[in-house]
Amino acid sequence: MDKLNFVQNGARKLPPGFRFQPTDEEIVFQYLTRKTFSFPLPASVVPEISVCNYDPWDLPGDGEEDRYFFTKNEAKYQNGNRANRATCSGYWKATGSDKRITCPKRSKDTMGLRKTLVFHRGKPPNGSRTDWIMHEYRLVNSGTTSSNNSTKNSDLVQMVNWFLCRIFLKKGSTEKQDEEINQPRAYGFVNGDDDDVGPSSSSSSSCGSSAITESTSNGLDLDHEQTSVNGFNDFPPYLYQ
């Protein structure tokens, strides 16, 4: 399992034609759960990093794609449990309600929670909202045999200290990385709706399926900019024949 390592210098580098597009269930039960209990991962495609040590546009990886990171919860205060979400230029602010993520094949007592956060430039509470979005996944346990619907999110107990974060620019955003660094300004959401903050949708799959998918156009993906990754060339020799 560990031989499938696609992380280089803290960034994900997949062979041309492949994309990492996991569902919520795959993120929680194939990656986060395995990371939490030190089981082998399906593939080493998610680097470990302290997300809040970076502004979102400075994180490793391709800013045009969703980026995934394992990170640990850092307390804001030494004697408290409140998470530190501040970066050099701003802070991550939670929005909406946490989404529960379950799997029929798993115990009902263990589930995932997905928290949505929006990046704000400046200092709270007067920061300027941007189009940078984070989905923060954590593994929780209800500690009871009650059904999921009868247990409040506030009663769920977080397991260990690992999170898996998906960071991306809101779909349809006109915000560019260079503009974000050189010309700071506030950006509103396209629809002005907190609930419409999801990434581009991916095809649904079962909680046990692979999260690495092959993406081609007419059988070939000719738009990939990588030249060589792990011995894979951008275009195989037969394309030139």
Rank of each mutant, 00 (worst) to 15 (best):
L169F: 02
S228M: 13
T23D: 01
T102I: 06
E26N: 14
F189G: 15
S107V: 02
G231S: 04
R12M: 15
F18C: 10
R34E: 08
N5R: 07
R82W: 11
R12D: 00
F20C: 06
D2A: 13
T213N: 10
P42T: 04
G127Q: 03
F163C: 14
G61I: 05
Y68L: 02
Q30L: 10
G10C: 04
C52N: 11
P15K: 08
E214C: 14
R82N: 12
S154R: 10
P199H: 02
D131T: 15
L156V: 03
I212E: 06
R129G: 00
G143H: 02
R19V: 15
S173E: 05
E225N: 07
D24A: 09
P124W: 03
N191M: 11
P22N: 03
F6E: 00
G96C: 04
E136T: 00
N9Y: 11
D178L: 12
D195H: 08
F39S: 11
T36E: 08
Q78I: 12
K105C: 05
W162H: 15
P56A: 03
S173A: 05
S228K: 12
E136P: 01
Y77T: 12
E179S: 10
Q183C: 09
H224D: 15
L4S: 14
N230D: 13
K152A: 14
N141I: 11
C103M: 00
N233H: 10
V160G: 05
S38Q: 13
S217H: 14
E136K: 07
K108Y: 01
Q183I: 08
F232T: 09
A43R: 03
T116Q: 05
F18N: 09
D98P: 01
F235R: 15
S128A: 13
K115R: 13
A75L: 00
R19M: 15
N233L: 11
T116Y: 00
C88V: 09
S97R: 09
C165M: 13
V51P: 01
T102S: 07
G231P: 07
N149D: 14
V51R: 01
N153L: 09
G80C: 07
K123Q: 14
Y240N: 09
W92M: 04
P125S: 11
L169Y: 06
R106F: 06
V51C: 00
L113N: 01
S203P: 02
Y187L: 09
N5H: 11
G17K: 08
S173W: 06
G172M: 05
G198T: 01
S210K: 08
K115M: 05
V229P: 06
S150N: 13
S201H: 10
T116S: 10
S205D: 10
V229Q: 03
